[in-house]
Design a protein around this nucleic acid. Structure first.
Length: 176
DNA sequence: CATATGATGGACT
DNA sequence: GTCCATCATATGG
């Protein structure tokens, strides 16, 4: 079952946690590549020194768009996949940091490489994940797993809260 | 147009 | 853990 807009219109913190274990499907040349989300981070545009959305025009604008909007953020030589959450105008998003491939082999252990594996590029920027038809999320099987949290990775000025969430002992998380 | 700067990845100790 | 190549953006002239 596809995840709808309602799923994303909650707080980024809640969505980030709830996204763990969900299935991401990317349709390439008529084939569906399925991967489980195993690691996420929550970002807040306002009052979040880690988020560049607070200053940069386009990012800030995109984070304020409606829930389910895909935000592709380029840094170094990589693309990072985010999904806008919360109510419109709230400046919240969840970063997808790692996936577990289910019906294919690829390196998806990190936010930059998973976008290469899934062929996610700036093309998707500002598209809505509920509407593209080639890229969406589905409810997962009810697998039991334990959620761990930690501080966000690679951030210069982080908040004193743990906004990174990952599935305990999963082999595909980007870092321990 | 020139230059600074990373929400990185991979190689290495 | 540390080091650094690399390139799409943002910003300033």
């Amino acid at each position: 079952m596809k995840l709808k807009k309602d799923f994303f219109s909650r707080n980024a913190n809640v969505v980030a946690k709830d996204l763990l274990g969900k299935i991401l499907i990317r349709k390439i040349n008529g084939r569906n590549f399925r991967a489980k989300i195993v690691e996420t981070e929550a970002y807040f545009g306002e009052e979040d020194p880690a988020s560049r959305a607070i200053k940069k025009g386009d990012l800030r604008e995109t984070m304020a768009m409606r829930a389910g909007t895909i935000l592709v953020y380029g840094v170094h030589n990589s693309w990072l996949l985010n999904i806008v959450t919360g109510k419109e105008g709230r400046h919240e998003a969840v970063l997808i940091r790692a996936l577990e491939p289910l019906n294919f082999e690829a390196n998806t252990k990190g936010p930059g490489v998973l976008t290469k594996a899934m062929e996610i590029k700036k093309d998707f920027h500002k598209e809505n994940i509920c509407e593209t038809g080639v890229f969406w999320l589905e409810e997962a099987d009810k697998n039991a797993f334990e959620i761990h949290s930690s501080f966000r990775i690679g951030i210069k000025k982080d908040l004193p809260e743990k906004f990174r969430f990952y599935i305990k002992e999963n082999k595909f998380i980007s870092r321990k």
